[in-house]
């Protein structure tokens, strides 16, 4: 093929700079094009907007009962704990737990009867039963995950089974005695 090597003698530096600049520019272009294609994977503006905090009225929840609701597509448990359940949760030796955490760190001070949790098992994401009366609550009276047998106590802490961590507490605050805002 007709390539005359002789004619490319001279100015090697200028040529190298030109090739380098072109290559860098091309690479920058590829990165620039990739940005929108990656960013489009993020939650869209409406998903973010509907993920705004929600308010929950606590008055209809009788003692010993719980309700479930969704926030940002995740299930939330709100449970009105009985005095006995609260005491049981408080008297446990924290050091003996698989994921040590005191009950007081999982509720708001002065509102110990109210427990608010993300309702997905920390093992592999199934929904533990026990919120409604009549559902199996496991060996520790809290929640029981039917998928792989994780037992949670009345503070939502893992006590037995494959789950590695307690049910997490979502961000929330009391607006007044009977209303909370989640988020």
């Amino acid at each position: 093929m007709a390539e005359a090597k002789a004619t490319q003698a001279g100015e090697p530096t200028r040529r190298d700079m030109l090739f380098l600049a072109t290559g860098v520019m091309g690479a920058a272009g590829v990165v620039g094009v990739a940005v929108p294609f990656i960013r489009q994977l993020a939650p869209n503006a409406q998903t973010i907007a509907t993920g705004a905090p929600i308010e929950v009225d606590l008055t209809p929840i009788a003692e010993g009962q719980g309700i479930k609701m969704f926030w940002r597509g995740k299930l939330i448990f709100v449970r009105n704990r009985s005095k006995a359940e609260v005491e049981e949760a408080q008297k446990v030796n924290v050091a003996s737990l698989p994921d040590p955490q005191a009950d007081s760190a999982r509720v708001k001070p002065g509102k110990e009867q109210w427990l608010v949790l993300y309702g997905a098992c920390t093992h592999l994401g199934c929904i533990p039963g026990g919120s409604a009366v009549g559902e199996v609550r496991g060996d520790y009276g809290g929640w029981f995950c039917p998928c792989h047998g994780s037992h949670y106590d009345t503070s939502g802490r893992i006590r037995k089974g494959p789950a590695p961590a307690n049910l997490p507490v979502p961000p929330y605050a009391f607006l007044n005695d009977s209303k909370i805002r989640i988020g």
């Binding site: 940005v35 929108p36 294609f37 960013r39 489009q40 993020a42 869209n44 503006a45 409406q46 998903t47």
Partner: peptide, 13 residues
């Protein structure tokens, strides 16, 4: 229209 309005760079794509 949701692609055009809400998806990040949806209008561009």
């Amino acid at each position: 229209e949701s692609i055009m309005r809400d998806v990040e760079y949806g209008w561009l794509i």
